[in-house]
Design a protein around this nucleic acid. Structure first.
Length: 426
RNA sequence: GGUGAGGUGGCUGAGUGGUCGAAAGCAGCGCUUUGCUAAAGCGCCGUACCUCAAAAGGGUACCGAGGGUUCGAAUCCCUCCCUCACCGCCA
């Protein structure tokens, strides 16, 4: 949520930054300003009436306690009360409208973000490693997984429809090994606090991290719209401290969480849907930080590096992309995507999206900290996958495939997987 | 799911219709005095919003949330949420 004061005082700046995103949201600003002006006018009038009423009511109280009657005063107060009724409902209506509009306007891109209207304008910041040299016919993850019985997509569809995975045998064990490997690395070496949050969250949390109100059709909801299946651990973890005031010495807070993620993927049918690349339920390790505004961009770089480390230790080739203004997510001011190389797709796959939301989410969830001067200020929030599983799984088995049909696994996984390769004998 | 108790400022905790944004204590901040890590005294010490060019000042709202009664609600009524205890059911 943007600061209404910023919109009021620097509306041209806000409009131009929204224009850079290309969503057409800049057109909402004038309407918003008009509502805001009328709302404040009403509020001021209302407060004056209220002040008058309070004053007279006190006089009535004083008279009564002296045993006098105050019929004339009471009549006047009653009249003021009547006047206030209309004004109050009008003001509430305006307030509701303003809030709703504000919740639907995206964040402003960071000043340095490359300008552009879509993914074509994103820029490659760096890349690491090299594409693996594979001998023989290169199989994609679906062929490999089917042959080695690592997952069973047809039977998963029998259970839940298309877009679901059922890992089996060595595949299920590899999934578990990867989860533990990533969790351990971030918790032990990168200093994140491991949390295992609820997967079902309230509507307020979904609003806090910007999934709602705008993207409700992409979410799985339960119980009359009260609870939602979290589409990412970002939701429960970032909201952990909602409506709290944190001590500045406790920042930054760093969390790592493993959760399944649930997404309807409405409207993406047919796009990159082969195999386990885009599904309705997938596992993900998520990194979340709560930081001061002064440190957040530093923390953003570090968070991205922490996520990259996973791919480095697994020896997988990847690149880091900086998203242009037009490709940025709704709440993000700056985002790096990490894309791992998939020999099977002959393309890069996004396995992490590391974003700095600045105070956009914090303002929605009223997450603040007390600074050195004792002033309450909004925190900055950040998150990124560290990393998403099915795509990592696919890239890993594709990159490790051997001519004899087995899959060689990176050494770092040995303590977690217990074997150096998957050969299909079990 | 049932029954009961309860939700007041950073914390503890008073307050059952008017002068209560809220006693008192603790914690915190400032000053004074004495002074070996400490004590005593005095003062300050919530948040949001509106108004104001800004500061000062003024105003409004907030005692879990929302609604109602009333000239006036922390206080009375209704609904909901949450916490605790016990019972039931259950992985």
């Amino acid at each position: 949520m943007l600061d209404i004061r910023l919109i009021r005082e620097q509306s041209d700046f806000v409009k131009s930054r929204l224009t850079a995103r290309g969503g057409g949201d800049e057109t909402k600003i004038d309407e918003l300003l008009q509502i805001d002006a009328e709302r404040r006018k009403n509020e001021t009038a209302l407060q004056q009436l209220s002040a008058e009423r309070n004053k007279l009511s006190k006089e009535i109280g004083a008279k009564r306690s002296r045993g006098e009657v105050a019929d004339d005063l009471e009549a006047r107060v009653r009249k003021i009360g009547d006047e206030m009724i209309d004004l109050t409902s009008r003001t509430n209506e305006l307030e509701g409208k303003q809030k709703d509009l504000l919740l639907r306007i995206p964040n402003l891109p960071h000043g340095n973000a490359p300008l552009g209207k879509d993914a074509g304008a994103n820029s490659v910041v760096r890349s690491w490693g090299e594409k693996p040299k594979l001998n023989g016919k290169v199989l994609d993850h679906v062929a490999l997984g089917t042959k080695l019985k690592l997952f069973d997509l047809e039977r998963a569809a029998k259970l839940s429809g298309s877009g679901f995975i059922c890992f089996t045998g060595a595949g299920a064990k590899l999934e578990r090994a990867l989860i533990n490997f990533m969790l351990d690395l971030h918790a032990r070496e990168h200093g994140y606090l491991e949390v295992s949050p609820p997967f079902l969250v309230r509507r307020d949390c979904m609003i806090g991290t910007t999934q709602l109100p705008k993207f409700e059709e992409d979410m799985y909801g339960l119980e009359n719209g009260e609870l939602f299946l979290a589409p990412t651990a970002e939701v429960p973890v970032t909201n952990l401290y909602r409506e709290e005031i944190l001590a500045v010495v406790d920042l930054p807070k760093k969390f790592v969480a493993y959760t399944p993620c649930f997404r309807r993927e409405a409207g993406s049918a047919g796009r990159e849907t082969r195999g386990i690349i885009r599904v309705h339920q997938f596992d993900k390790i998520e990194l979340v930080k709560i930081a001061t505004p002064e440190d957040s961009y530093d923390e953003h770089e570090k968070l991205t590096a922490d996520a990259e480390r996973i791919l480095q230790l697994l020896g997988l080739h990847y690149r880091v992309i900086e998203l242009c203004t037009g490709d940025l997510g709704f709440g993000s001011a700056k985002t790096y995507d990490i894309e791992v190389w998939s020999p099977g797709q002959n393309d890069y796959l996004e396995v992490s999206s590391c974003s700095n939301f600045e105070d956009f989410q914090a303002r929605r969830m009223n997450l603040r900290y007390k600074d050195a001067d004792g002033k309450n200020r909004f925190c900055h929030t950040l998150n990124g996958s560290g990393v998403a599983l099915p795509r990592l799984f696919a890239a890993l088995i594709e990159s490790g495939q051997q001519e004899d049909g087995s899959i060689r696994l990176p050494e770092i996984l040995l303590p977690y997987f217990g074997e150096a390769k998957i050969d299909g004998h079990r």
